[in-house]
Structure formats: structure tokens, C-alpha cells
Design a protein around this nucleic acid. Structure first.
Lengths: 339, 339
DNA sequence: GCGCTTTGGGAGAGCGTTAATACGCGGGGC
DNA sequence: GCCCCGCGTATTAACGCTCTCCCAAAGCGC
């Protein structure tokens, strides 16, 4: 616990006032005359006093710290989210206690216990399973301030996030609009029970009267560029190649793009590619990548604001509010050319 | 501070034992007979008891939490570092209190105060300025466990990091070896006082008898892909184009690569490019990027181990130890072809 | 000069936990 | 039969801070 040994009592001893008076003076209480405050504050500065937030928390029953639980920070969009949240929280005087679940429910539960034991004032979480929310609902029911970073419609918990179904629908629809009918989907989250993207994809196909072909749904078993590369290797090498690929995130899309460039498959002439999240590396890729934009700043701003409101509400939380942000599709060269 | 209201006292009331007995029982003290322990532990489980780490910290004088202060998590290598550190710490039962300095010394100081006020047991920091370490040295002198994530040789503080000077030297040397003499450097950190990369670059030039040309040193004013793109726009559009580019990180390098691809400048035939950090997006770029590998896992493992040792040392810290990791150069297509 | 308020400050309790110490009681040694 | 010991548990005092009283002296009106 650091080596910070200067306490209120030390300032009290040095100035001759009681610890109580010192405490009030350092918090600018009007009950202490200006002159006394000056003396005390000067003494505090000389001793290099730093208030012990732990002791403060014990009595005030708030830690001014929130728990941030993410699945896996290597996804650039979650990285950006983490950064943006930390910024917003620190601007409000809150610290960020960070933990990862590694896309594993058991670890998620452990991470939540860890931050709860440290008495965080609230939790922001990007849950592993968008459907496995019971443990979170229990917290919410116990009046624990918690906000999901996923726009899960029927969570029963406050949530702010991209409408992934609509995003996937827009991306697929766009591919259809520019003339594609054989559209592959790369999505690692679907087997884990996060079906939104898959549903958006299927819905767009259905609306266009295109039959759903299970062979075109690829499970990359991960979310790295590498995974995207190998996910498409099978179908693309085969005889019945798709003419378009929709990837559930830009890392996967860039992997697919790389496969194409390496095998002299022209993008977008031979195969069009759309990603999701609109990360910077996509914009500046070998062929600039079309992508569904994830409005990180908007999501984090709203999520933090909502969490602050829940914290302020105290013992009687308001009804949960779910905000689903309708994402924009950013069209770049990887789908630009008409067929 | 959450809404966790179950205390030792509640378990005591329920079971009829004193809070003290409950405390001992839950910590498996041999002083409490097995049978009593069972009763108490069952009651604790029923009440959903979660120990209050804050209260525990106040008396034990350790929080089992460490502060992680980074400049800017958007750099993929720092992202990876953050993830890897969180993992290592959580495996050791430590929480990670995370803060960013946004590459600003004032904010760095504030971030450190924030984590110190929360009584973290130690600090891991990627400092803004590799030469502005006085405030950190003061902490170290006060026996505060702190480890830098930068291999700064004469820090006087424990440090683990890549040897950036050698890395830059290797990259530049490689470009010289494959026949280049007009080699541009893109480096945003140099104007901030982090001169290691620049020095490695200049040293390699000098050894090869190549005159240093200030016009070839480009300040991107940032570290995004976008910045890399615009940083090279000037020299590359001019008459006296360099034939090779060494970028201080892969984001910048990918920006430069993108400029080339967009303007039909062949890589590596017309211009060779080397980056630094060896991020995955570089490996799968339009032209796979040569890069100096940053051994993230090694750095974080050693840094965390060192921090643990410092924490265990208590009031008498051992002499600071600085570990500089000699990075490997990964050669890919962006520099492969001989001229 | 009396009682009132106001001003400046202190004493003490308590936040949830742990560590040190105290205590009651049963049993064994002599 | 008495003392002592040890077992099982309770009591008490911290940890550093804030909050709720409380008190003493000064100021003020009549």
C-alpha cells in the first residue's frame, strides 16, 4: 500500500490543531477561518500530504472508482473504448479498475467479484455472452449500478451499444445492392451465442430473396487478422467461390483482404469485402476497406453518462434504459466498383 | 461503493458467533474447529458475502492493486502490453488500476497521484518523456515500488523494455544492407525528447559513411496511420525522394505504405519500408511489413516479476535493475527485394 | 450584567476488517 | 481439592478518515 506515511495526524501534530480541524481545513470548510486554513494547507504541502482514498472510502462508502470489464482488449474497437472510457471517467474524478474476461464466462464472474470486492461505485462491462446475463441481472436487481457496452435489447439492464443486427443488415444489403448474391459471412461470435450479426445478415438475404447457404458461414475461431485469413482459405480455394465477404469485424476482414491480395484475387472486382467497426487500419489498408462504423465516442459518452446517473440515483435505480445506436456504413474501395 | 451490505457482523448475527470468530473462520484459521468453520462458511455463502477489500486494505496496509499508467493505449503495442499485464497481475491476485497520461507530463503526474491516493501497492508506467523521470525517481527514493516499461539505461529506477536504440540501428542497418542510402526517418517521439530511435538511426548512417540529412527526418506530430501518410507526403512528392523509409512504429509505417500504394510507388522496388513494433496488421498489410519486433510478453513478464520483487522487499528496496531487451528484426516483403 | 447567538475548535464514535489480548471452562496433574 | 493449561471464543484496539455532537469564548442587545 505504497509508502505514503503522512496522515492528517501528522499535519495536526505539526500545526497544533486537531486532526478534525485539519480534515475540515483541507476540504475548504467555511467553518475554518481562512487564516487557519492557510496555515494547515501550507503544512500539508510541506509534508507532501496525499489523502488516503482508502480510508476516505471506508467512511464515505464510495470509492470514486468504477470497474471496467472487457472481453479482450486486443480488438482495436475495445481498445479505443477502454481509452475513451478511462478519459471520460478521469475527467469526472473517477479511477478505472480494469479487468478482462478473456471471452470466458467463469473469468468474467471472477473479474466482477474482483472489482466488487474493491467496492467500485459501478461497473461498465462488455459481456462475453450477450445472452448470458443472469449474473449481471442479479447485480442490477441488488441496485448495483451497471451498464452494458452492448446494445442488447431485452437485457433488463441498462445498455448502450451499436445495433449489431442493423449494422450487419446494412453491410449485407450494401453488398446485395452492388450486385452480389453469393455472400460469405465470417463471424466468430455466433457460435458463442451472439447471434445479432448473423441475424442481420440472414434477414438481408431473405429480403432480397437470396437463399441462405450454410457453407458460406465461416467460423474463424478467433478475431485476429490471421484468423480471417485462414477462415476464407477454404471457400476461396474451392470451385464455388463467393463474390463477396462480410466479416464481423475489421481484423477478420483485413485477413480476408490479405488472402485475396496474396492470391491475385482482385478486390473489389473479383471479390468485394465489408468489415465492421471501421478501424483506422481498414481505412489505410492495401484496398481501403468498407466498414460499418462503430461510433465508439458516442457509445462511451452515453454509457458513462448513464452510469453516473445510476450512481447518483442511490438506492432506487430508475428503470433500465437500452440505447441502440444505428451505425453508419462507410463505403470505400473494397466494395466501390459496380459489377 | 456498490450496494454490498453484507458484513462480517451480519454473518455473526446469523450464526451467533462474534465477528472475530467469523473473520477467522472465513480465513480458514486452524484456531476455529472445522465444525464451526463449516457453519460459518455456509452462512456466508447463503448471505452472498463478499469481503470488503477496502476495509481489509486499511488494516493490512496493502490493496492488492497496482497502478498501470500508459501514455496512450491506442498504440497496438501498448494495448497488447496492457492486456498482458492485466493477465499477469490477475493471475497473482492483483487488480489493475488503469490510467492514461495522453503523452502529457502534467496528466502523468495527476495519474500517478490518482493511483497513489488509492494506495496501490506499486506502479508500472510507460512514461511520457524518457528523460523526464525526476518525479518518478522521487517516488523510488521514498521506497515506492515502481517499474518503468521503457528500457531507459540511466534511469536510476527499475526498468524493463526494448532497447530502442539498437532496434532503430538494426532497422536502418538492414535498409543500408539491401542497398539504400537515402533513408527517411518518421519519428514523432524525438521532438518530445525521446531520442533513442533517432540516435540508432544516425549511428547506423554514420557507420556506413552516409551523411545525415535533416530534411529526411520527418515529424508526423502523432502516431496514427493517418499521420504516417501525411508525414511522407512532402518528401515523397518532391523531386528528391528517399528510397527507403524507417518509421518509429508500425502505424506510421502503414501510413507511409498506403501513400506509396495509392501513388503507384512500388514497395519495395521503388521505396522500401521498415516499421517498428511488429504488429499483426503489419504482417497482413497490402505489402507485408518488415518490422522490429517488440517482445511484449517478455517485457511484461519481466516487469511484473520485478515489481512483485520490489513489493515483497518492503521498506528496503534493492538496487534498481535495468533490463534492455535486444529486439529482433523481422524481414518481410516491404524490404525483401535487393536493389 | 444577563442570557442569547455566533465563532472556532475539539472529543468521540464509527466505517468493516484484522491482530492482540483476554476470558471462561473443562480436564489433568499432584 | 487446587492449580494450571489450553481450547474455543469474545473483547478491544487499531487502520485513516469523516461526521455528529459538544464546549468555550467572544459578541451583542436589553
Amino acid at each position: 500500500m505504497g509508502r505514503s506515511i503522512v496522515r492528517l495526524k501528522d499535519i495536526a501534530d505539526k500545526t497544533g490543531f486537531s486532526t478534525n480541524t485539519v480534515s475540515l481545513a483541507l476540504r475548504h470548510s467555511p467553518r475554518i477561518p481562512q487564516q487557519t486554513r492557510d496555515v494547515i494547507q501550507r503544512a500539508a504541502a510541506e509534508l507532501n500530504y496525499l489523502p488516503n482514498q482508502i480510508a476516505k472510502s471506508l467512511v464515505s462508502r464510495e470509492t470514486k472508482t468504477i470497474g471496467l470489464v472487457l472481453t479482450d482488449i486486443n480488438n482495436p474497437v475495445l481498445t479505443h473504448t477502454a481509452q475513451s472510457i478511462e478519459l471520460a471517467l478521469s475527467a469526472r474524478g473517477y479511477g478505472t479498475l480494469f479487468a478482462t474476461s478473456n471471452n470466458n464466462l467463469t473469468e468474467e464472474v471472477r473479474a466482477i467479484e474482483m472489482v466488487r470486492a474493491r467496492q467500485v461505485d459501478g461497473i461498465l462491462i462488455y459481456p462475453t455472452g450477450h445472452r448470458q446475463l443472469d449474473h449481471l441481472r442479479m447485480l442490477r436487481r441488488a441496485n448495483y449500478p451497471i451498464v452494458l457496452l452492448v446494445g442488447e435489447a431485452d437485457a433488463g439492464i441498462d445498455a448502450v451499444g451499436m445495433d449489431e443486427r442493423r449494422g450487419a443488415h446494412k453491410a449485407t444489403r450494401h453488398l446485395i445492392d452492388v450486385g452480389h448474391r453469393r455472400i460469405a459471412l465470417i463471424d466468430g461470435a455466433n457460435p458463442q451465442g451472439n447471434r445479432e450479426k448473423r441475424e442481420g445478415y440472414q434477414q438481408a438475404l431473405a429480403e432480397a430473396g437470396i437463399g441462405f447457404e450454410p457453407a458460406l458461414v465461416l467460423d474463424p475461431r478467433g478475431n485476429s487478422v490471421d484468423r480471417g485469413y485462414w477462415a476464407v482459405d477454404g471457400v476461396m480455394s474451392g470451385p464455388d467461390r463467393p463474390t463477396a465477404i462480410f466479416a464481423a469485424n475489421d481484423s477478420l476482414a483485413l485477413g480476408a483482404l490479405r488472402w485475396c491480395l496474396k492470391h491475385n484475387v482482385r478486390v473489389p472486382e473479383d471479390v468485394a469485402i465489408v468489415g465492421m467497426d471501421n478501424i483506422e487500419f481498414g481505412e489505410y489498408a492495401g484496398v481501403p476497406l468498407s466498414s460499418v462504423d462503430y461510433a465508439v465516442e458516442t457509445v462511451t459518452r452515453m454509457a458513462v453518462e448513464r452510469l453516473m446517473r445510476l450512481i447518483a440515483a442511490g438506492d432506487q435505480l430508475p428503470e433500465p434504459r437500452i440505447t441502440q445506436i444505428d451505425p453508419d456504413l462507410v463505403i470505400r474501395e473494397s466494395t466501390r466498383a459496380q459489377r
